[in-house]
Amino acid sequence: MVKNISLVFLFLLSSLLSVSAQAENKPVYTIGIVPQFEIRHTRKIWNPILSEIEKSTGIKLKLVGSPTIPDFEDEINSGRFDFAYMNPYHMLLAHKSQGYTPLVRDNGRQLYGILVVRNNSELKSVKELDGKKIAFPAPNALGASLLIRADLANKYKIEIKPVYVKTHSSVYLNVVVKQTTAGGGVQKTLKQQRDNIKGALRIIYQTPKVSPHPLAAHPRVAKKIREKIQHTLMKLGESKVGQSLLLKIPMKKIGSASLDDYKPLEKLNLQKFYVK
């Protein structure tokens, strides 16, 4: 019900915007951001970048927030956004449903999941985790959950008892306080933990690396506009100010992205582990 109301609201809003754009003879494009952070935080990161794009190209981009990840996924699947920043698994889904294509991604790093256990754990191999409780932040977190669960099932053929604990920090804490035997996370969040927690954990497994989150465009957006946006963003990555703005996304080193970058994911058969 809430979802429907918000869709109606978005539709009305975009209609109004297109009317006003037509009045000014300037199109306004919508951009959706995966709700990894709170909406205000997301706006704080993205609005300066969108202003830079408009300043350079005259193309107006309007940030449209989604309350939850499932909402965001629905909106992608329905092609609601002209542009969207999404995770690699979403990229595959968006391409399949609406033909979204990636424009840019972080070329400075790659995304992979890690499986941690307590430092003093007697566990030696991943196989020993069969039947054990393993903490994950959420079912559909790509690196910290989907990649790991897919590998454990596909590669190690073991069954585990997943415990979803909302955040990466909770994953690590659950492991340290022995609530779970192991936990899924990513390198970056593990590094962010306090030393005593980091010191209490060791990585027992690391998933194969995948390309990180891309900014993708809907096929209805003219190629010229798509290229302009791609070019402008990559240009932004060359200046220090631009770099600092992009780092907040986070994109360490911006570069172009192609569908091929995300093809390896298809083999992992992630939809089997995706929880709707």
Binding site: Y164, K166, S170, Q179
Partner: peptide, 9 residues
């Protein structure tokens, strides 16, 4: 209940 030790902490 939600095992969210991080929030708890």
């Amino acid at each position: 209940l939600s095992n969210d030790l991080s929030s708890l902490h």
